[in-house]
Design a protein around this nucleic acid. Sequence first.
DNA 1: CGTCAGGTGCTCGCT
DNA 2: GCACCTGACG
Length: 832
Amino acid sequence: MSESVAPPLSLSARALQARAPAAPADYLDELNPAQRAAVEALDGPVLMLAGAGTGKTKALVARIIHLVRQGRAWPNQILAVTFTNKAAREMKNRILARLGESAEGMAWMGTFHSLSVKILRRHAELVGLKSSFTILDTDDQLRLLKQLIAAANIDEKRWPARLLAGLIDHWKNRAWTPDRVPTSEASAYNHRGTELYEAYQERLKTLNAVDFGDLLLHCVTIFQRHPDVLADWQRRFRYILVDEYQDTNVAQYLWLRLLAQAHRNICCVGDDDQSIYGWRGAEVGNILRFESDFPGAVVVRLEQNYRSTPHILAAASGVIAGNANRLGKTLWTDRPGGEKVRLIGHWDGEEEARWIGEEIEALQKGRLGHDISLDDVAILVRASHQMRAFEDRFLTIGMPYRVIGGPRFYERQEIRDAMAYFRLSVSPDDDLAFERVVNLPKRGLGDKAMATINQAARGAGVSLLDGARECLARGAIGGKGGAALRVFVESMDRWRWYVENATNEGLLAELRFERKELKSIEFLRAADDPPSEEEKARDAKVSMIEHKLRNLESHVVLAETILEESGYTDMWSQDKTPEAPGRLENLKELVKALEQFDNLTGFLEHVSLIMENESEEAVEKVSIMTLHAAKGLEFPAVFLPGWEEGLFPSQRSMDESGQKGLEEERRLAYVGITRAEELCTITFASNRRVYGQWQSQLPSRFIDELPGDHVDVLSPPTLHNSYGTGGYGGSNSFDARAAKADVYNSPGWKRLQDRVQTRGISAPREAAHLTIDAQAVTGFGLGDRVFHQKFGYGNILAMEGDKLDVDFEHSGVKKIVARFVVAADQVSDVPF
DNA sequence: CGTCAGGTGCTCGCT
DNA sequence: GCACCTGACG
């Protein structure tokens, strides 16, 4: 690729100023000094350490506007990497609002993955792919791996495909191609990990497919092996901006460093306290190391928080202070008071959900002194299975909610099936799609038929579809199955013919040509010239053809036809299961979504990258999502349920990564609290169903870490289910404060005192310290027989603080907070 | 070949 | 509790 050297900067500046609307630099006046410093340091490396809610998006947007207004770069010469497509969209809109039409060229704003696809499509041949490669999702990936595992004679039971998938993903995150996996990994996956990784990559190449990790990895490989290509891109992207830098992994880091190393105009924004993707290969080290990676970097700290009340901020700071490895920031705000963070314990998960539902209703009725819309409320959970209880509850009380990041539209079974039909119609050698739908609806083709087809295909070195054709020709598959297969193959041919011809091939060919021209003009113009007349003309022509094609709707009709003729729609209409109508609805939605694209191919390309639910509904809804999905969002009212040991912090995280894992969990707690603007409510339950079994839960250690001065401990409105005071947890000084709040008036406390007196033990003056004798705190002794609402009768094995180890007759040994059991001989005087 | 019952193992988070 | 797999049966 030859590209002329950029003309002097001043030229472009003049050209730009002539084109951009003459507006004052008002965007600078709106910034605080730190933000302004970050925006105005245009050249060289910049690290923006931006705490939660300190206006980093604002600063990023201002920086881009500044770059354009100062004539440093055209919008299409700025590379801006965001963490989600949504964030990219939002930023684009904000820039568009300021810059007007000149922002339309912001073509290079997106996630690492979406940007990588764009780059990779242009250089696919350099890694042995065609530019039409397909992007596999986890489902396809897993099926492919299973085949390879079977072929390698490995027992998938003992060595699950998921394990291998995780391993490969891990390696790709570190930018290790099969030949570069270090020998220290040799024992992975029963000593055959590397071998299978290599086989997997080979197979992907034959399928002309990539997985998610490949998008980045292939780009890095191309940049490393083809300096000329890299140089082109380096020249193209004069300025690079990166959001959420703390969550980049090694591959992404290399990707960035390669692109930035020539001019070093890179600005990274991040917050080490919000690094929550360590499990995905993110390296906090990237942000901690920035200054040594890019010597002479300007480091700017954004510490003024505009989002949350002082109490919320203080609570979050108190928790995160427990982490050792931090760059350290002090967030402050000049906002006044507000409510303290609220803390409340419940009997179990269902009651927790019920209480939160009622609280949300109270918020709607003006509990905060002003109107709150359901859109302003979010429930942030640690693990997605916690969402169920809330969905169940909200469905019963009719409260509208939306689950963000749940099972996504394009991951649903019916959608993926339909897409497989489309994929196969577009590219007949998509074997994975063939396997998925050849017997769907049931066509009487089982393992035996599939084996025959596979063998034929492999023998002749052709696709499965052609293999099937061959089997039919020599009558290898007969009977009912054979007849159905014949119809299937013939239908495919017919649909494919439509894809190529009936959908107005003439227009499509023209469109393809124009687009290609436009792209190369645009690409070669990478220097400084404004769009030429030719480019504008081509652009207009492309839009016109697109418009025409859209009005033809031919591919939409074709999609409907495929689903009808294949019998797929029928399959669901005849299905009696309750979810069948919903699936049909989804299929309709899918067909409707097609209208926005020129053809099936374009649609398929788009879908593989959109990993979010895009729908923007008009109805107000409570948002339910995981803490991870909540990153970057904010809500006036936030509920944080499930703060219990083992769930949050997650046991698995601590088991796998020890102290590091715990610190990441703590950062997650920090992210959760700092999502709240006005009201933050933390809840936990004493009992929870885990794997369908009731488990007693202890309050999270993070609750103990909340600074007491900024927390209000609430007692549950009803005590009908629990003994005594309801459950707030922990057993440190903060809990003592909590205890003071209402314990002394509760029936539980009185019972305790009675018991203490009859046993002749002196009552604790104040349950303030761990050192207090366990027996004094709880009123129980070793070996006492107790009763628990859910677990029944049992004997006390051990005691520590207010926690008991109880051996239940029917449920085995459990750790229980003392207030949830009662002496067995007193059961009768407790109503429940 | 398809269906159904029963058993197993498991799930943290996401582009 | 649920998804997935297996094996028996029609």
